[in-house]
Design a protein around this nucleic acid. Sequence first.
DNA 1: AATCCAGGCAACCGCTCCGAC
DNA 2: TGTCGGAGCGGTTGCCTGGAT
Length: 322
Amino acid sequence: MHSIRPPVRAAASVTKRMCNSTEEDSQLRRGPWTLEEDTLITHYIACHGEGRWNMLAKHAGLKRTGKSCRLRWLNYLKPDIKRGNLTPQEQLLILELHSKWGNRWSKIAQQLPGRTDNEIKNYWRTRVQRQARQLNIESNSKRFLDAVRCFWMPRLLQKVEQNCYSYSTLSTMDSQTDAAASASSTNFTVDNSLSSESFPIQTKWANYSNLPSEHSNSVTSPSVLSTDSKPISPQTQTLENPASISPPVLDNTVYDNLIVGDCYYVENSGYDMDGLNTASVPEIVAFGDSTSECQMAESNWVFDNDMADTLWNMDDTWQFRL
DNA sequence: AATCCAGGCAACCGCTCCGAC
DNA sequence: TGTCGGAGCGGTTGCCTGGAT
């Protein structure tokens, strides 16, 4: 989780960044915001609402531009801003939406309540592009998109499943000790991001075992990513047998089947915890039309072992840790 | 303990869009 | 139709932090 930097460290950089042109400019503050400034904005907006940022800056007594005030409010002060690491679900959504929309950060951010375009942009530039650099491939190339689709997204999905399992276990424990809690488990949400309301995209209910046939054809688990029987890496073997590490499948459970463009992913939002089955392992996801891109035999490139190792060692980058 | 360095992120900049006049 | 100001967007900058040496 990134630290919320205290806004008081400002002075040095403020003076450093001071504009030198007009007198008016020289009176404008730049750089990090102080607590006092934050309070001024917050109080002003509480009284007058958002908008008219130049007026706000003037009337609230801020020596800032309207633009600066707007940015500060939207990216930092707004009450519904979500802080902390992006969850696997959110990362998945970002990857998928970016593949559809490109650098339309604000548009992507609209699908992630509480996250700002700036935050998503930073995430992409720091984490995603860094990995592209490490792999020595263009971050906007098809090759990189393939890597994202074939390796990271399934991995993230697995992490989502693991999260669900952890939370389901908690829920089950609750139910043993507290009938009332159990009764309300349909609304159980452990992580904000697990709540379906965090995804104002098209959703539909579907039995996990009843994915549409055109997608069930292309159900993609990490195990199908290898075109031959040779494991891509030791980590892949683990994934090929997720039972060794992974949570139980939510068998016969009603899933919230999220559809994002041509990508399906299945989310258990904790709606029905009764059908937990601790024996089997989920086929995690179906990637719709993009599946062919994930089938390495049909791809015009292959992962060599080094790259595969690199890919599988990116847990830190993708925040796979629970 | 001191220094270096890369990553993360808040903030700024320049540009475009849009509505009012 | 042209101009202006407000608002929003994407790219970039630069400071801070924490890990490595």
